[in-house]
């Protein structure tokens, strides 16, 4: 059995009357990536804040162990084992990138020479050498995020929390960030990240928990989650109402949308099933204006699980 880097039981937190986390259980084995996926206001950030010792959970929360240390009694041991990159950049904008890194080295009590070496290495690794001696307030969003992660890595934490690491980043910076996270995991680091992007969870995470309204709506691997929702389908779109009508007559199992003149036919997207469908259409001399094959992805899972009351999002 592998050891758990993060183990939380019955995590609870409410602010006044608003329940933010309603008893969630998390188990993250060492050396894996765990994604907390959920819409805004689902409680992702609150969960990270509690697990990273920033705020205290409500009484009634069960055991929480991070890196084997108990959260309630030995938070300082946890702090020595973790690295946290919050949602809002945790860099000092008034000083330079190098000075930020040296600040972290000092707070980790690294000897001066080692601190300088670590700072230089990380700045190099995160492509910040050129900007290293400029004030951080002049950095772009992507650079600040990279510096943020670089600062988190000083002291070699074995468990890293990343709260929405790619929110607000352009596509290139996002891919850079993904590469960084993959590198970390290759080094055996455990990563717990939150995201509202399904693609991101799919790309990075070994295990995904869908958080909605303070509860875990579902969890498993990306593949397991995709199996929750009904299989794939083929979508046919028509512009001619007569052709649309003939198609609905020919394909009785299709879900129809009379307004948009589209049909959805259950189909797993395999060569065989697709050929069968195309043959049926050819035989009946039906010509769709557009045919798209849709395999289930995390979007389907996400919407299926969180659709009930997404409008209830509240302002914190």
């Amino acid at each position: 059995m592998t050891n758990l880097a993060i183990a939380a039981n019955g995590l609870r937190k409410s602010y006044d009357d608003k329940v933010v986390l309603d008893g969630i259980d998390l188990a993250v084995p060492e050396g894996t990536v765990f994604a907390l996926l959920g819409p805004n206001g689902a409680g992702k950030t609150t969960a990270v804040k509690i697990l990273s010792t920033l705020i205290t959970p409500d009484p009634g929360t069960g055991d929480i162990r991070i890196g084997g240390h108990d959260l309630a009694t030995t938070p300082q041991s946890i702090r020595a084992a973790i690295g946290v990159t919050g949602q809002f950049s945790a860099v000092d904008g008034l000083i330079t990138g190098t000075e930020n890194m040296l600040l972290m080295a000092d707070l980790h009590h690294l000897p001066r020479a080692e601190g300088r070496r670590t700072a230089a290495e990380l700045l190099e690794r995160f492509d910040l050498v050129e900007a290293a001696n400029k004030p951080v307030s002049s950095y772009s969003g992507g650079m600040k995020r990279r510096l943020d992660i670089a600062m988190t890595l000083v002291g070699n934490p074995r468990i890293i929390f990343l709260d929405e690491p790619t929110t607000g980043l352009d596509p290139r910076s996002r891919h850079t960030m993904w590469a960084i996270i993959r590198e970390l995991v290759a080094d055996g680091v455990t990563v717990l990240l939150t995201t509202q992007y399904l693609e991101e969870a799919d790309e990075l995470a070994d295990h995904i928990a869908v958080l909605n309204n303070g509860r875990i709506a579902a969890q498993g691997t990306a593949e397991q989650l995709k199996r929750i929702v009904p299989g794939g389908h083929v979508r046919l779109r028509f512009t001619d109402p007569a052709a649309y009508q003939r198609a609905t007559d020919t394909l009785p199992h299709a879900t129809t949308d009379d307004q948009a003149l589209t049909l959805q036919i259950p189909n797993d997207g395999s060569q065989h099933q697709l050929r069968t469908l195309l043959d049926q259409l050819d035989t009946a001399d039906i010509h769709a204006d557009e045919l798209t094959v849709h395999t289930p992805d995390l979007d389907d899972v996400f919407f299926a699980l969180t659709s009930t009351d997404t409008s209830k999002e509240t302002v914190r």
Binding site: L54, R79, I82, V84, G86, F88, A90, L107
Partner: peptide, 13 residues
């Protein structure tokens, strides 16, 4: 108001 203080709070200092 800065995220930096949150970082300090999660460090073993």
């Amino acid at each position: 108001n800065e995220g930096l203080i949150a970082r300090f709070r999660t460090m073993a200092i």
